[in-house]
Design a binder for these strands. Sequence first.
RNA 1: CGGGAUGUUGCCUAGUGGCUAAGGCGCCUGCUUUGGGAGCAGGAGACCGAAGGUUCGAGUCCUUCUAUCCCGACCA
Length: 571
Amino acid sequence: MKATKFFFKTYKEIPKEAQTPSHILMHRAGMIQKLASGIYSYLPLALRSLKKIEKIIREELDKRGCQEVLMPAVQPAELWEESKRWKYYGPELLRFKDRKESDYCFGPTHEEVVTDMARKILTSYKQLPLNLYQIQTKFRDEIRPRFGLMRGREFIMKDAYSFDINEEEAKNSYKLMYDAYNAIFTRMNLKFKPVDAATGAIGGDMSHEFQVLAETGEDEILSCNKCSYCANIEKALSGNELKKADAAKKKELSEVSTPNIKTIDELSAFLKIDPSMLIKTIIYLVDDKPVVVLLRGNEEANEAKIQAFLGANSIAPANDTIVKSITKSEVGFAGPVGLDPNVLVIADKHVFEDTDYVCGANKTDYHFKGFDPERDFKPSQIADITFAKKGDKCPKCNDGILEEYRGIEVGQVFYLGTKYSSLMNCNFLDSDGKEQTAVMGCYGIGVSRTMAASIEQNHDDNGIIWPVAIAPFEVAVIPVQLNSEIVVETSEKIYNELLASGIDVFMDDRNERAGFKFNDADLIGFPVQIICGSRLIENGKVEVKIRKTNEKKEIDIINITAAVKELLLLL
RNA sequence: CGGGAUGUUGCCUAGUGGCUAAGGCGCCUGCUUUGGGAGCAGGAGACCGAAGGUUCGAGUCCUUCUAUCCCGACCA
């Protein structure tokens, strides 16, 4: 491709809405344009990179027996009612009506459609295992789209779905996809970690995320410094031992007046007590039912853990009306003592590490002191519902300590079980002629996000540093003096030779000064740049620059194709 | 949705209530120049986010709306 014919434009200025490296650089390199919040057009440079990512994905999945399909983006509400997600998916699901006033949505994911597709064909165990995937535009009406392609509302996703005869086989399918994802991101030359993950709205009970490590990542990861344990903070466990409450410390439960003191911070300051000796009582709505959650005041509630513990579809803090009805007091004075025994109360295990706490009295302007968790109430369940922290002991090897990383989630694999297949009757007959429900897994890769994540992880002050495998072009030929016949001729010859040898090559034939082209080349991030200047050409050489290392070598023009091919293999 | 901020030409910015809204980048024409974002000359491009209002007079003040960005919940 020649620059003078190529639809692109680069910018010196940083657009003021771009805040993060991938967003800034993709904009400056003329790869993307914003059409609306979280909705972007991909210009030719970006699309070339996306196609390469897609090609790697297709190769690795096809190799493992997955089959590509393409499902509709617009989906009827009835299917989502079958899976109950019409109700539970929430406002991220873009819903609309057609002219007949029938309900539809724009697919944020395709479990419903693929399960429907499969059940129409699956009749026999002989048809399994089956793994169907597609690469397609998804829409999720994110509350807050941000960072360009990192969290768009419309984005390109590869989604795959496996169907198996039983759990064991389904776990094999899961493992196969786990391996495929490792292969895919390895081929893209990204630094990444597979981590234990929470399952969220998709559901299921086993999941790993593939996290590209980058400072700007939105996710926190805890990883053991001694063993392979690595988990999203939402899921990570602490290996720290629980302390035993000191029975000698027990006190009587008594009321204390705390007028208008509602938050943990206010209470801590008012009573001059450390937050860890206060009990935080939070009321959630979990699948529309109130659940009371107890924690020590210095801990944060890990909503993902609560949701997973209860096997729930949704979790959200309860509104004031519900809080008041449960506590029979104003918001801010909720506590565990004397609640309606029919309300589910989940206590964090750390609550039982001590005694003589202060907690809400379920009476406006009063708290209790001397609260003893063993004596003064009866939790429905005790669970681990707090966040593990960096520095905690590793829960797996019990030897190492947990270190903190930031990551960008580019892929996630879920073991679903029969969550969708049973609700939607995706059944088949086994070898005994008995009806069985297909056991499913689902597997996503954010294709457009992967491109952005690669830039987040690999860039410098001058621009993008692409791994060759997903670079829009592998090589740029840059003639430096266009008024020199020998330069024009030689660069043209090299360009044609590289093209003929199958290399993805860009030729900057614009009538611009050298510095201008060099800066654009670094910004766009061509991994290899062949600089054709008259002085070297007269000696039968050109300069070859490696973008990543900034290393420059003089190469004989005669050997240029072989030399470039060799370099590309190394990058 | 809560908290914060911002809308001036394709992009980045300036603009005390007062004359024809200013500059840089980019774009077009010509000349010059050609190894790290060149120079000169000329030119095109804005109903200042929208609608109301205050005022003799509004890009500037007020109200409402709208869009965008940042901090939180969501997630590939």
